[in-house]
């Protein structure tokens, strides 16, 4: 006796749910993340309780623990940083400069750049910090 074979039916699983989840994750990561240029070295910002929300825009000067410099993600020697900042300022006189210094960097690597920015004519210079409840003096 020849049995009649059932015709295979197409799988009925819907991929709409998968698309929904992927869309949700995509929007989540787009909203939560910041697309800042990252420095070519590790920078752990200092902690502060009284920091304000980081405004958008501007350029970021990253300073490593050993005093290495990077402007908007590009490593630069110290001798070129002044010219690079001046050039950026000519394009936008109200440009904000964010100084993202490693928390263990000596101040002799950090403060001269604040002075340099002031001398070049920057009027808005901010230090990048991370919020932390247990930051203390004298560590």
């Amino acid at each position: 006796m020849k049995l009649k074979q059932n015709r295979r039916t197409a799988p009925t699983e819907t991929i709409i749910a998968l698309i929904d989840v992927v869309f949700f994750l995509l929007v989540f990561f787009m909203l939560i993340g910041r697309m800042d240029a990252t420095a070519p070295f590790e920078v752990t910002p200092p902690q502060a309780q009284t920091g304000r929300d980081m405004p958008t825009g501007g350029i970021t000067l990253a300073i490593s623990q050993n005093g290495g410099l990077a402007l908007d993600g590009d490593a630069l020697p110290k001798s070129e940083i002044s010219a690079a900042l001046a050039e950026a300022l000519t394009k936008d006189p109200a440009l904000r400069l964010r100084i993202n210094a490693h928390r263990d960097a000596d101040l002799r690597h950090v403060l001269p750049h604040v002075s340099l920015a002031e001398a070049l004519g920057f009027v808005d210079v901010v230090l990048v910090v991370t919020p932390e409840a247990s930051a203390g003096v004298g560590k």
Binding site: I19, V22, F23, L25, L26, F29, M30, I32, G33, R34, M35, D36, T38, P45, A48, T50, G51, R52, D53, M54, P55, R98, I99, V114, A117, E118, F122, V123, D124, V125, V126, L127, V128, V129, T130, P131
Partner: peptide, 24 residues
């Protein structure tokens, strides 16, 4: 969509950053 998702996951930074004004 998966490529975009991986791109945003890898390239974005998720540090909560604040600022203290140095010059105003």
């Amino acid at each position: 969509m998966l490529i975009l998702l991986v791109f945003f996951m890898v390239t974005s930074s998720y540090l909560n950053l604040d600022m203290i004004p140095a010059l105003r």
